[in-house]
Design a protein around this nucleic acid. Sequence first.
DNA 1: TTGGAATGTCAACAAGGCTGACATAAAATG
DNA 2: CATTTTATGTCAGCCTTGTTGACATTCCAA
Lengths: 169, 169
Amino acid sequence: MAEGPNSAGGGENLLFLTDEQIRKGIEAMFFAYRGFTADPDRILASHGYGRAHHRALHFINRTHGTTVNNLLSVLGVTKQSLNRVLRTLIEDGLVESRVGRTDRRERNLYLTTEGASLERALSEAQRDRMRAAYRAAGPQAVAGFRQVLEAMMDDEIRAHYKTIKERRT
Amino acid sequence: MAEGPNSAGGGENLLFLTDEQIRKGIEAMFFAYRGFTADPDRILASHGYGRAHHRALHFINRTHGTTVNNLLSVLGVTKQSLNRVLRTLIEDGLVESRVGRTDRRERNLYLTTEGASLERALSEAQRDRMRAAYRAAGPQAVAGFRQVLEAMMDDEIRAHYKTIKERRT
DNA sequence: TTGGAATGTCAACAAGGCTGACATAAAATG
DNA sequence: CATTTTATGTCAGCCTTGTTGACATTCCAA
């Protein structure tokens, strides 16, 4: 038969999975991620913040009152690293940290009015680009985009993502 | 009509572009990129290298004999930053830097046997995950994935990407 | 031949990861 | 009630990888 390296199994058509195709996908991912972060990065820089601050603001905004531990597992960083970022956000009055009601060891995190305002500016910039890309590619492409991205996540992380996915706000 | 915030024009159906959809896409991008880099990161760490080394190896491998300037514009970093990475790779015998024949200010970069070997290990790990994701999502999803990613790049970067795309090896 | 562009190097600094050690308070458990 | 575990914060030190600025070298073109 001599079908080449991608003829292995399952009865499905896997000929589209050439190394060349996949290599292009890798580079597309690399270049697209740069575009994806470019706009918020500019805003952040003008405020003296970095991407780490953006991520914290984003996830605090998405799940109001989340705990530090929760945030750690979503962001996948150490508490020391997150703490440095949180401390500056709290000092600058963008984030409020309240002692937990049921468990007073916990800290529940909320955006202040000012924090919500910066978060909105950042996510609007990012959404604008994403919206333009979606629009250019069309609904069917977007569905495929999401499918591939979801399949690319680590299992544990996919659980986080799905939690977010099912939430109704 | 009261169609909501996404009813603006063009005659196309843009109702799928809800802020909620787009927010999910943003988070998918964030989580997927982590998965995308996780496997090579582990290999790199065991060699005492970081992502910057991976990127350099990748693009030197793709365009043998590329110059430093060329690499700079693809990677989007300063020459000082790239130089530090290149220096360690050269010192460790993974990359060879030859003085340009026509212009002796230029340095043409090549992977050594050892460098090519590490590059292969890194890209194989990354391709394995990408292949699994592609396989799980199917050919149509992959096409959509690539369309959206391409639309998300900066214009200048898209030019780089397309150059790569059209190359026949 | 001289000035400017391209290239590379050195030094210093910052962001944001990491580990390790330690403190505190509160909850859970014996 | 005593002890252990959990959640959080903090200090110190290290690494990678980005940044600027200053400066040397090389080449090309006016």
